[in-house]
Amino acid sequence: MRILVVEDDVGIASGLRANLQQRGYAVDMADGIASAWSALRMERFDAVLLDLGLADGDGSELLRRLRSSPVPGSGQPQALPDPSIPVLIVTARDQVHQRIAGLDQGADDYLAKPFDVDELDARLRALLRRAAGRAAPTIRYADIEVDPAARTVRVQGRPVDMSPREFSVLLVLLEARGRVLSRQQIEERLYSWDAAIESNAVEVHIHHLRRKLGSACIQTMRGVGYFMPQDLPA
């Protein structure tokens, strides 16, 4: 899952990035409203961590602009971000009225600094789960059970070893099951701007997943991309 962190304190930003990357997220950074808006227009993110006290203005202005954006594909002449992207405010403003204001302005959750990174991760998982339309903390698909919190996979109750990247590819395809994703779309969900990507990385990960989970789980639409069927035949 790919996260945009909007934070102008270099120390906090680097710490957040390192901790989130250790938990399997692809993380991109923006240090203000202008750079964050440009990033949201250019790339697709699964969630935004938003500080409010930014050098070029109040982060709530970015939130307002985001929530008032037209839905992409509605005939707009320029690229626009998805107005429904989950936003978690992470800020030192911890008064009750400030939290209420942030949530009323369109934030999906609010976390006051200082915070525990494990709690941040749990809140992120909850946001991503709701955005995907899931209520259960685990994902079940045929005889496969995936636990995003523990980052574990079981097939018929037996654990399956996976690399962090294989797990991430599986999670992306599971969340989009029934829809075809191109290699570029998968890469965009897995890699930050500065990540080095081998040309056949996605194909290699999918080959390994098929070997571990069964070839029917991930199918190819030639010339288009990969998908997991909505339901596997019995």
Rank of each mutant, 00 (worst) to 15 (best):
I85P: 05
L120N: 01
L128W: 01
V160G: 04
E166L: 12
V117R: 01
A150L: 10
S182N: 09
D147V: 07
A112P: 08
S182A: 12
L181V: 08
G133W: 05
L181D: 06
R151G: 02
R93G: 04
L171R: 14
R151Y: 00
P114F: 07
L80K: 10
D116H: 13
A122Q: 05
L181Q: 11
V172C: 10
V90A: 08
D147P: 06
P83I: 01
T152S: 09
T152D: 01
V169W: 02
V172E: 11
G157L: 12
D108V: 07
Q78R: 14
F167I: 04
L171K: 12
D147S: 11
L174I: 12
T91Q: 07
L171V: 06
H97A: 14
P164H: 09
K113E: 07
F115V: 13
D82E: 14
A112M: 10
D161L: 13
A136M: 13
V96R: 11
A176Y: 04
A150Q: 12
G133M: 11
L120G: 02
Q76F: 14
D109R: 12
S84P: 00
R140H: 11
V172S: 04
I100H: 03
R140M: 06
R151N: 02
D147M: 07
D118S: 12
D108N: 14
D121M: 03
T91N: 10
Y141E: 09
R151E: 00
A79R: 15
G133F: 07
R140P: 02
Q76C: 01
A176H: 13
E175T: 10
R125W: 05
A132I: 04
T152W: 01
I89P: 02
D116K: 09
H97D: 15
T152N: 03
T138G: 00
V160A: 10
L124S: 01
A126I: 09
Q184F: 06
F167R: 01
Q78D: 10
R154I: 05
E175I: 00
V117D: 01
P83S: 06
E175K: 05
P137C: 05
R130L: 13
D94T: 15
R179L: 12
L88C: 10
V155A: 09
A107Q: 04
V117C: 02
G133L: 08
L124A: 01
L103A: 03
F115T: 13
Y141R: 10
R140Y: 00
Q156N: 14
Y110R: 03
A126H: 07
A136R: 13
E119Q: 11
I144Y: 06
S163T: 15
A92F: 10
G106W: 05
Q78N: 08
I100F: 04
G102Y: 01
D121W: 00
R165A: 13
P114M: 08
P137N: 07
V172R: 02
L127G: 06
S84H: 15
S74V: 01
G75Q: 11
I85R: 04
I100E: 09
G102S: 05
E145T: 14
R154G: 00
L80T: 15
R179V: 12
V87I: 06
Q95S: 15
R179Y: 13
T138A: 06
L88M: 08
F115Q: 07
